[in-house]
Amino acid sequence: MIIPDEIYQFEDSRFRALIQPNAQLKRLATGFEWTEGPVWFAAHQLLLFSDIPSERIMRLTSDGQLSVFRCASDFTNGNTSDRIGRLLSCQHGTRSVTRTEPDGSRTVIADQFQGKRLNSPNDVVVQSNGAIWFTDPTYGILSDYEGYQADPEQETHNVFRVDPDTGNLEAMISDFVQPNGLAFSPDERILYVAESGSSHDPDVPSIIRAFNLDDGGRIAGDRVFATIDCGLPDGMRVDFQGNLWSSAADGIHCFHPDGTRLGKILVPEVVANLCFGGPKGNRLYITATTSLYSIAVSTKSAI
Rank of each mutant, 00 (worst) to 15 (best):
I7S: 06
Y8E: 01
Y8P: 00
F15V: 02
I19R: 01
Q20A: 07
A23H: 03
T35G: 04
E36L: 08
P38M: 00
F41D: 15
A43R: 15
Q45S: 13
L47W: 12
D51V: 02
I52H: 03
S54C: 10
I57A: 05
S62K: 09
L66I: 14
L66D: 06
S67P: 08
F69G: 02
F69M: 05
R70H: 12
R70I: 08
N77R: 03
S81R: 04
R83C: 06
C90V: 05
H92A: 05
R99A: 15
D103C: 12
S105R: 13
R106Y: 10
A110C: 12
K116R: 15
R117Q: 14
R117V: 08
L118V: 09
V125T: 09
S128D: 15
S128E: 13
N129C: 11
A131Y: 08
W133E: 01
T135E: 07
P137Q: 10
Y148D: 06
A150Y: 02
A150F: 03
A150H: 12
E155Q: 14
T156G: 06
R161L: 13
S174K: 13
F176M: 11
P179E: 05
G181I: 02
F184S: 12
S185Q: 09
V193T: 01
V193Y: 05
S196N: 14
D201G: 07
S206M: 07
I208R: 02
R209T: 06
F211W: 08
G216P: 08
I219G: 04
T227G: 09
D229Q: 11
L232V: 11
P233D: 04
M236T: 01
V238N: 03
F240M: 14
F240I: 11
W245F: 11
A248H: 04
H253Y: 08
H256N: 14
G259M: 10
T260N: 11
L262N: 01
L262D: 01
L266W: 00
V267N: 00
A272G: 15
G277F: 02
G278M: 06
P279C: 05
K280W: 04
G281I: 01
L284C: 03
I286C: 01
T287G: 06
A288F: 00
S291H: 10
L292Q: 02
S294T: 10
A296N: 13
K300G: 10
S301T: 11
